[in-house]
């Protein structure tokens, strides 16, 4: 499944800022088994774009994010950032690159140290990298607070004194402090009220323009991802199943899993409401310690056939799709195909 990735994709004008190749991440469990949280993922992110990464909880998208941010050492594969190979870098060698890649975390409560003042939290990147101190640092922090829409006078407050949305702004400010090139947003809004979600997403969008940021935007919520992303990658059980430019993914959905995710979206467009099918996936997501053979989705796929259990589909353009739209499925959906009536047939023919 790695073959297509070395080729230039849609817009060859921009070099990829991030190139992930066949990354695997395994965690040992108490037994002798391992959890394959990320099991061979390859993707690229170009400068200035936003790549949405969606999937159910536990599909490995957060693990992948931490592999990219070098919070985890990958088990195998390569992560290349702006031409530098990150895997195997020592902590010391990684330090300057930390400034380039930042993360915004899901939980605005857990990701801010409750015992430290906001000014100190946002100033942390400066302190760690020894960039500025004293009044200068304070000014910078307060500038940042202003940029993300916080009252700079609240510099001395503690996280507990802020609302969830404000806290996430603190997290954003901290991530932006060092003017990174790549920001990995790990479900940055999923813990927030819907009304606040939009504010944060708008903030992120504004900041992207202002600071020329590149985002990897992780969410389990396709509607959020759709709003911010240029391209979307759908992940299932440690693997990518479909990658496509945002609108194409929605219009020409190829993978049954993607379609299932889409069908779970709340009604956003009244015109399409009645035509939407409701696809309820059978069973639970299988265990990552012992993923299904063949196509990982075949145990839950309405269109599953014997082939799906026997072989693993590669992530390639299917049907008449262009190179930017790749799908890992033997039986991709055609436009307008009704999946709700499909019945799996795993008997060998």
């Amino acid at each position: 499944m790695t073959e297509a990735l070395t080729q230039p994709v849609t817009q060859p004008v921009t070099q990829p800022l991030l190139r992930v190749r066949d990354v695997r991440k395994e965690f040992p469990t108490h037994g002798r088994e391992v959890v394959r949280a990320v099991d061979g993922v390859s993707l690229e992110v170009r400068k200035g774009e936003t790549l949405g990464l969606v999937g159910e909880t536990g599909c490995g998208k957060s693990t992948l994010a931490r592999c990219i941010a070098h919070l985890y050492d990958v088990t195998s594969g390569s992560v290349e950032f702006d031409g530098t190979e990150l895997t195997g870098l020592s902590r010391r060698a990684m330090r300057p690159l930390r400034r380039e890649i930042q993360m915004i975390f899901q939980d605005p409560y857990g990701s801010l140290n409750p015992r430290r003042r906001v000014g100190s939290i946002i100033g942390d990147p400066f302190a760690i990298h020894g960039i500025s101190a004293g009044a200068e640092r304070k000014r910078k922090v307060q500038d940042l607070m202003e940029v993300v829409g916080l009252n700079p006078e609240h510099y001395n407050r503690f996280p507990a004194e802020f609302s969830g949305g404000q806290r996430q702004r603190i997290g954003v400010a901290r991530a932006l402090a060092l003017r990174p090139k790549l920001v990995i947003c790990d479900e940055p809004v999923s813990a927030l009220d819907v009304s606040i979600q939009a504010q944060i997403i708008n903030l992120l969008a504004d900041l992207q323009k202002e600071f020329d940021l590149t985002y990897v935007f992780i969410s389990h919520d396709l509607s959020v991802v759709r709003h911010v992303s240029d391209r979307i990658a759908v992940m299932y059980l440690g693997k990518l199943v479909e990658v496509a430019p945002t609108e194409e993914l929605f219009q020409q959905t190829r993978h049954p899993y993607t379609r299932a995710l889409l069908s779970a979206l709340p009604v956003a467009d009244p015109d399409t409401a009645d035509s939407r099918e409701q696809i309820i996936l059978a069973g639970d997501i299988p265990s990552a310690t012992n993923p299904p053979q063949g196509c990982r989705f075949h145990t839950r796929c309405p269109k599953a056939r014997a082939t799906c259990a026997a072989a693993e589909p590669g992530l390639d353009p299917v049907l008449d799709d262009g190179p930017a739209h790749r799908t890992a499925c033997f039986f991709p959906l055609t436009i307008g195909e009704d999946l709700s009536t499909a019945v799996p047939d795993l008997k060998a023919s």
């Binding site: 941010a69 939980d107 857990g110 942390d124």
Partner: peptide, 12 residues
Amino acid sequence: REFVEAARSLGA
């Protein structure tokens, strides 16, 4: 906790 991870991601 995530704030430890956050500190690590900052290079602490």
